[in-house]
Amino acid sequence: GPMASDKRPRTAFTAEQLQRLKAEFQTNRYLTEQRRQSLAQELGLNESQIKIWFQNKRAK
């Protein structure tokens, strides 16, 4: 629909990254900035991508 703007492409996470994020989520529903930074480095992701993933996951 018209609401779907092309400005922010959805990140396609790899299965491996998703597995890691899910495991982290089961341990911590809320990430500290430090955890998020190390996860971002570990997974080669953007911190904001991880932050948003957690927000979306909590919203469900």
Rank of each mutant, 00 (worst) to 15 (best):
residue 56 N to M: 11
residue 22 K to L: 11
residue 17 Q to F: 01
residue 21 L to Q: 00
residue 59 A to V: 06
residue 20 R to Y: 05
residue 43 L to H: 01
residue 43 L to W: 03
residue 34 Q to M: 10
residue 28 N to D: 09
residue 36 R to H: 04
residue 48 S to H: 13
residue 60 K to Q: 13
residue 13 F to T: 02
residue 36 R to I: 06
residue 29 R to S: 06
residue 11 T to V: 13
residue 33 E to N: 11
residue 47 E to F: 03
residue 13 F to D: 01
residue 56 N to T: 12
residue 36 R to G: 12
residue 34 Q to N: 09
residue 48 S to E: 12
residue 59 A to P: 05
residue 56 N to V: 08
residue 55 Q to G: 07
residue 29 R to K: 10
residue 57 K to T: 08
residue 27 T to L: 13
residue 20 R to E: 02
residue 33 E to L: 15
residue 17 Q to I: 07
residue 54 F to I: 02
residue 1 G to Q: 08
residue 27 T to F: 13
residue 37 Q to N: 08
residue 35 R to V: 07
residue 36 R to N: 08
residue 43 L to Y: 02
residue 22 K to E: 07
residue 25 F to Y: 09
residue 28 N to P: 01
residue 8 R to V: 10
residue 50 I to M: 02
residue 18 L to Y: 09
residue 29 R to H: 08
residue 57 K to Q: 13
residue 9 P to K: 10
residue 12 A to N: 15
residue 52 I to V: 09
residue 10 R to W: 15
residue 13 F to M: 06
residue 52 I to M: 10
residue 8 R to D: 14
residue 32 T to A: 04
residue 15 A to N: 07
residue 19 Q to C: 07
residue 32 T to Q: 05
residue 45 L to W: 01
residue 57 K to R: 14
residue 15 A to V: 12
residue 50 I to L: 10
residue 20 R to V: 07
residue 30 Y to I: 09
residue 59 A to H: 14
residue 21 L to I: 03
residue 30 Y to H: 05
residue 17 Q to N: 03
residue 43 L to V: 05
residue 7 K to E: 15
residue 31 L to I: 10
residue 57 K to I: 05
residue 42 E to S: 05
residue 20 R to K: 09
residue 39 L to N: 00
residue 26 Q to R: 12
residue 1 G to I: 12
residue 1 G to F: 14
residue 52 I to W: 14
residue 29 R to I: 08
residue 38 S to P: 01
residue 53 W to V: 02
residue 26 Q to F: 09
residue 2 P to S: 12
residue 58 R to M: 07
residue 10 R to P: 15
residue 58 R to H: 05
residue 35 R to K: 14
residue 54 F to E: 02
residue 14 T to R: 03
residue 20 R to M: 06
residue 3 M to D: 13
residue 34 Q to A: 11
residue 35 R to A: 08
residue 24 E to F: 02
residue 43 L to P: 00
residue 40 A to S: 12
residue 55 Q to A: 12
residue 4 A to S: 09
residue 55 Q to H: 13
residue 28 N to G: 05
residue 20 R to W: 03
residue 35 R to N: 06
residue 47 E to T: 14
residue 41 Q to E: 11
residue 58 R to I: 10
residue 17 Q to W: 01
residue 2 P to C: 09
residue 9 P to D: 06
residue 28 N to T: 09
residue 25 F to H: 02
residue 21 L to W: 00
residue 7 K to D: 15
residue 13 F to H: 03
residue 42 E to W: 03
residue 44 G to W: 03
residue 10 R to G: 15
residue 12 A to Y: 15
residue 22 K to Y: 10
residue 5 S to E: 12
residue 15 A to T: 09
residue 53 W to S: 00
residue 19 Q to N: 13
residue 49 Q to G: 04
residue 11 T to G: 14
residue 20 R to C: 05
residue 2 P to T: 11
residue 22 K to R: 07
residue 3 M to L: 12
residue 27 T to N: 13
residue 37 Q to F: 10
residue 6 D to E: 13
residue 42 E to T: 04
residue 57 K to C: 06
residue 15 A to D: 09
residue 48 S to N: 14
residue 29 R to C: 07
residue 56 N to E: 06
residue 4 A to N: 11
residue 11 T to Y: 15
residue 38 S to I: 13
residue 51 K to A: 08
residue 18 L to D: 04
residue 10 R to D: 15
residue 48 S to M: 13
residue 55 Q to L: 11
residue 50 I to A: 01
residue 19 Q to F: 11
residue 49 Q to A: 15
residue 54 F to P: 00
residue 60 K to A: 13
residue 22 K to F: 09
residue 38 S to C: 09
residue 15 A to Q: 10
residue 37 Q to D: 05
residue 25 F to T: 01
residue 36 R to F: 05
residue 23 A to K: 13
residue 17 Q to D: 04
residue 40 A to K: 02
residue 5 S to V: 08
residue 24 E to R: 01
residue 39 L to V: 03
residue 10 R to F: 15
residue 32 T to G: 07
residue 26 Q to S: 11
residue 21 L to H: 00
residue 42 E to F: 03
residue 52 I to L: 11
residue 56 N to F: 14
residue 39 L to D: 00
residue 32 T to M: 02
residue 49 Q to E: 08
residue 16 E to Y: 12
residue 24 E to T: 03
residue 27 T to V: 14
residue 19 Q to E: 05
residue 60 K to P: 05
residue 48 S to Q: 14
residue 23 A to E: 12
residue 1 G to S: 07
residue 45 L to F: 02
residue 51 K to Y: 09
residue 37 Q to H: 10
residue 50 I to S: 01
residue 18 L to C: 05
residue 30 Y to K: 08
residue 55 Q to M: 08
residue 14 T to A: 02
residue 12 A to D: 14
residue 1 G to K: 07
residue 58 R to G: 05
residue 60 K to L: 10
residue 55 Q to Y: 14
residue 17 Q to Y: 01
residue 33 E to S: 13
residue 1 G to T: 07
residue 14 T to F: 02
residue 32 T to P: 04
residue 40 A to C: 04
residue 25 F to W: 05
residue 25 F to G: 01
residue 26 Q to W: 04
residue 25 F to K: 02
residue 10 R to L: 15
residue 13 F to N: 01
residue 6 D to A: 10
residue 46 N to P: 06
residue 32 T to D: 12
residue 42 E to D: 09
residue 53 W to Q: 00
residue 20 R to D: 01
residue 53 W to C: 02
residue 51 K to I: 13
residue 59 A to R: 15
residue 55 Q to C: 08
residue 31 L to T: 03
residue 47 E to I: 09
residue 2 P to N: 14
residue 34 Q to S: 15
residue 3 M to T: 14
residue 40 A to H: 02
residue 9 P to Y: 04
residue 48 S to L: 10
residue 7 K to S: 10
residue 25 F to R: 02
residue 34 Q to P: 06
residue 46 N to T: 14
residue 48 S to G: 10
residue 2 P to D: 11
residue 5 S to W: 01
residue 3 M to F: 04
residue 12 A to S: 15
residue 43 L to G: 00
residue 21 L to P: 00
residue 15 A to W: 10
residue 49 Q to C: 12
residue 32 T to F: 02
residue 19 Q to V: 13
residue 49 Q to D: 13
residue 42 E to P: 00
residue 46 N to A: 13
residue 22 K to G: 05
residue 33 E to P: 15
residue 30 Y to C: 06
residue 60 K to G: 06
residue 5 S to Y: 02
residue 6 D to P: 06
residue 6 D to H: 05
residue 51 K to F: 08
residue 4 A to H: 14
residue 4 A to W: 08
residue 28 N to C: 09
residue 57 K to Y: 13
residue 41 Q to I: 13
residue 40 A to E: 03
residue 16 E to W: 12
residue 31 L to Q: 03
residue 34 Q to E: 10
residue 38 S to E: 11
residue 18 L to P: 00
residue 12 A to F: 13
residue 33 E to Y: 11
residue 42 E to H: 04
residue 9 P to R: 03
residue 52 I to D: 04
residue 6 D to K: 04
residue 45 L to A: 05
residue 27 T to Q: 11
residue 16 E to T: 13
residue 3 M to G: 11
residue 26 Q to D: 08
residue 27 T to C: 08
residue 24 E to A: 06
residue 21 L to K: 00
residue 14 T to K: 05
residue 2 P to W: 03
residue 22 K to N: 09
residue 60 K to R: 08
residue 57 K to A: 14
residue 35 R to L: 09
residue 47 E to V: 11
residue 57 K to H: 07
